[in-house]
Design a protein around this nucleic acid. Structure first.
Lengths: 329, 329
DNA sequence: CCCTGCTCATGAAACGTTTCATGAACTCTG
DNA sequence: CAGAGTTCATGAAACGTTTCATGAGCAGGG
């Protein structure tokens, strides 16, 4: 069966090279070692085909070079993008990723933190859906898009600014009556600022606006009901919509089309996230693009920072608008 | 700083409970232990807030309960789906996932195997793009969609059957002149059987067909050239297309629309994979759906199997057709 | 009552690293 | 040339588990 049972160890290398165990360790870790000793050790490593064993190091140092990422899933393209870039960023720094899918289940989030503790990960990056989550104080903890307290760094896009941009764009397109729709109203989270920014810009721009914020568990049909309520004489009384996410924007566009309305002719629709078809194609809908790569970078440097407490408790990264949508005809 | 330095260990628990170290271990691992001892140990664990430490166990047993997944990225929705289901499947069995993104880079694949070795993962599941990859013989190794040799289990969808279904569907739709387009011709991989199945069914059904198999690195423009060559008198001389992947199908549909053709009125298009918009919406294109969940399950049970050599060297799982596409209008 | 066999807790060794105190071999300074 | 300082290899201890040989305690059979 698999695993060669008597894989050579540092002790074997030391014996082969005729040096002390500690010397081998220092060669491997690139520390100060005399030229001749280094050569002897390296040759011995070659001869024996020695393979470094991280388990030993983890036990001794209590550091695993692993960071846990807690996230609902990898199916939503925004999450998939986050996972991708965080992994790349970790890899750059020689860290591994321990991936935990919560499927939006709050109990699982708690269980995962426990599991992470037992696996001695060196830190946690979490995109959580439990506003009452108990943040561990024994492991460096960084959140994405969720502000818990000043002692827990939160990395987010500039949601407020994004909301403003959305309103400005709708105004540019000539919209006069707009609405903001989203789920997740129960969370005191950063994304809820999308609404705030949107509203503030609508006021400044003199746009008439409405806001529909549903609970997380609200059925999608409630959005359709909202649309129906705004149909008068076969016409939609709204000419611009800003949705909390691209996924919602996509669904709304489908609904509008089923109802016989054309996007963007009858009504402009803007989403949030910056999802692209297959990653490298055009944007799925017109959208406020999140700087996923920068977010990933910020999360990783924050969680790996030696002095977590010196990290700002809220880091906002700039967003931008991009037009998209499947080409009509 | 983070980590509480003197976290209690099994030895502390043993002392607190007044029992031997080994007894604590057996309680924790659910082995035969007297009732009274078990109770004492459990109470001590509670009192001390003891946390199990996996590093110690990994060192001692040389098993980490971790499986590495080597895959190009998580941005392509098909890969994202695989990652998701494999993770879920591993979690069921109390295993963790070590995720390695190759970005289609062959050297990275090799480097990852080395890294996995050092991290002592218990096995590897790989979707590789290097047909010359050296498969390690010291770690259980299972591939997705790539057949290497009889001693390396390969899990795949029934690509041949899928190709047949595609041809049958096109025939049902009334197509007479069809084509199969794909990249990746250089790999002697399972997906290339999509062509074989398609061709065999075309022959049986009396469809006239063409095949365009491009190298991996071929620019997308070559597909557009192919389409252009088949325009005669402003009409497309093909009425059905089968694409190697949904991504390609999606791109082709965009191209066709730009060229002024309607899908499916002018030409039927079928992809392969079963990608859905945001995971739970309708299929992006009409497609042959891969049983991702079953593939994940098969990969995990294979790689965790105690007797890898008894696993069939090729496992094919059934596919099915699903119609999709963004609703026209 | 002795012996055998069983159940089950004990204590110690082992896994492969890192790290630290020790000291050998030099070099420099006055 | 003696003493102080520097560089660098050594040997051993420690990290937190699992596992194994040992033996204590007890029940049953003759």
């Amino acid at each position: 069966m698999a695993k060669a049972k008597n894989a050579p160890t540092m002790a074997d290398v030391a014996r082969e090279a005729g040096v002390a165990l500690g010397t081998v360790s220092r060669v491997i870790n690139g520390q100060q070692v005399g030229e001749e000793f280094r050569r002897k050790v390296e040759e011995a490593i070659q001869r024996l085909g020695y393979q470094y064993n991280n388990s030993g190091r983890a036990l001794r140092t209590d550091r695993t070079n692993t960071i846990a990422l807690i996230i609902p899933n990898t199916i939503n393209p925004y999450f998939a993008l986050l996972v991708h870039h965080i992994n790349i960023e970790l890899e750059k720094r020689n860290y591994r990723m321990l991936l935990c899918f919560t499927k939006y289940d709050r109990d699982r989030e708690t269980e995962f933190i426990q599991m992470v503790r037992q696996n001695r990960a060196d830190g946690i990056i979490a995109l959580t859906y439990n506003p009452n989550l108990t943040i561990p104080d024994d492991i460096p903890f960084v959140t994405i898009d969720r502000f818990f307290s000043v002692s827990v760094p939160c990395i987010a896009a500039d949601n407020f600014g994004g909301g403003r941009i959305a309103a400005q764009k709708l105004a540019e397109f000539g919209c006069r009556k707009v609405a903001f729709l989203r789920t997740g109203s129960s969370l005191t989270n950063e994304p809820s600022k999308r609404k705030d920014g949107f509203v503030s810009a609508c006021v400044e721009l003199g746009l008439s606006f409405e806001v529909l914020a549903l609970e997380d568990e609200a059925p999608y049909s409630q959005f359709e009901d909202f649309l129906q309520e705004h149909v008068v004489d076969g016409k939609l009384s709204l000419d611009g919509l800003f949705l909390g996410t691209d996924m919602l924007a996509w669904q709304i566009i489908q609904s509008l089309q089923r109802m016989g309305f054309c996007v963007p002719e009858d009504v402009q629709v803007i989403g949030f996230d910056g999802i692209r078809m297959f990653g490298n194609q055009s944007y799925v809908v017109s959208t406020i693009v999140q700087p996923v790569q920068d977010i990933a970078e910020a999360c990783v440097s924050a969680v790996l920072s030696r002095h977590l407490s010196t990290i700002p408790s809220l880091i906002c990264l700039p967003v931008h608008y991009a037009s998209g949508g499947t080409t009509k005809e």
